[in-house]
Design a protein around this nucleic acid. Structure first.
Lengths: 247, 247
DNA sequence: TCACATTTGTCCGTATGTATC
DNA sequence: AGATACATACGGACAAATGTG
């Protein structure tokens, strides 16, 4: 008999039951980003719990990146998709705790982006190619005008993920992008290598059109390695609000 | 001038100040996993806030994977390192928010697991091989006794991710595993093909020992395809705890 | 088995701050 | 400026869980 049939029956706290109830309403599509929930007091009444319980349920949903709360008249809890930001925040926490290194992230990034490109190579449509070409054209124009094209360089990878036509890859790319942005903001070298980026991206598109898979993959890998060299390891300044004076 | 230098000055709520205070104590090393914090009431007194505020701060730390709370005598808040599990939970949430098809999932799973195996192939140590072998041995024993070995079959992939020595892959594997379980609950055939799984896993280990990378990858791919065939859309009962009648 | 202490879980009442009308 | 509808926060109380003697 399969032991895992008998689930752990974890005596959930009621704020957890409420938060996972609302969560499943979100996953099922019954609640969508932008939807307003009733106020704390009102929802607490409807779930027949106290306000504190309701509030703790809201805290969970906030931290899960699914809800924001606005104060004041006309405010209240609003469904909101913030999940990628939350994930990258947690990744940063993990890096601070030395559970993760930039090296590991880069290794994983190269592997995942190659997988995405490989998949996109098979599934890509003409419109996707057009979008990618426009992206590179805009990037090059900006560089000529001495502007930063880093937004376009990020966007390139997003477009590539879309071309794979697979939502899992799109989610993963979003996560990688969010983490990368975060790392860049905090730990990047003073100037950006956006020029080499746009160039490499143009060549990747060419390789796709020529149906030269290996060439495309090689250029991508080289590009990512170049970019990742502009990230420096996290220093242990422990940042943040407070000195360690107990409590 | 860099706009992001001027930080948003978000008027933090007091439970947020407290939670980030405790967080920075953890990052600085002043608090380590296993350390007990004073009770809710005691800490609330020390921070000069109400108990409700203190509790909401604890909820944040729980969701950040940094704290657990135990009820009863001798219980209380305990620093706890759960962060990687929380990250994969959140990736799982992000994937659940997209409506994934089984086709999409399988495609992504094949690609990701191949990446992991490929990485593990280079980084694997003797102990990892031993663990994998034990896993397969247990699975085969269970199958002989006509028991389900599906727990072991899932575990095999987890062990492989560990062998890659990259925490990002471990987290991703956990998310993929969770999605797989989730889909199995929704759409699984009445009986499991655990037998072919254990066999394939044994062969993968052999291929790794023989240093035959392509062979290992091919067996893996075939195994995943076999498993995915046991996933078929049954009906569109839209699942889940709750009928969508609001709250 | 039984009381007892400790700590979280939950509820209620009330007061204050804040954003919109 | 004033009223309104929210979240935020405090304090007191009791229930439930958990370990000890």
């Amino acid at each position: 008999m399969d032991k895992s049939l008998f689930e752990p029956l974890e005596s959930k706290r009621s704020f957890e039951e409420i938060s996972s109830n609302i969560k499943s309403l979100i996953f099922s599509g019954a609640l969508k980003p932008g939807d307003r929930l009733p106020s704390e007091i009102e929802l607490a009444k409807q779930y027949k719990v106290g306000r504190q319980t309701m509030r703790e349920a809201f805290r969970i949903l906030e931290l899960s990146g699914l809800l924001t709360v606005q104060k004041g008249y006309g405010g209240g809890p609003i469904i909101h998709d913030n999940i990628m930001e939350r994930i990258s925040d947690m990744i940063l926490d993990a890096m601070k705790l030395e559970k993760l290194s930039i090296q590991e992230f880069t290794t994983a990034r190269i592997a995942i982006e190659k997988v995405i490109l490989n998949e996109a190579f098979d599934k890509i449509a003409q419109e996707d190619i057009t979008l990618l070409q426009e992206n590179v054209a805009i990037a090059k124009r900006k560089i000529k005008k001495n502007q930063s094209a880093s937004a376009e360089n990020f966007e390139f990878h997003t477009l590539m993920a879309r071309a794979s036509k697979n939502n899992i890859f799109i989610v993963m790319e979003r996560a990688i992008n969010a983490i990368h942005r975060f790392l860049r903001r905090k730990y990047s070298l003073p100037y950006n290598k956006t020029k080499t980026g746009a160039k490499a991206h143009g060549k990747i598109i060419e390789a796709i059109i020529e149906k030269d898979r290996d060439k495309a993959l090689k250029i991508l890998e080289k590009d990512i390695i170049t970019v990742s060299k502009s990230l420096i390891p996290i220093s242990d300044d422990s940042s943040s609000t407070n000195s360690a004076k107990g409590f």
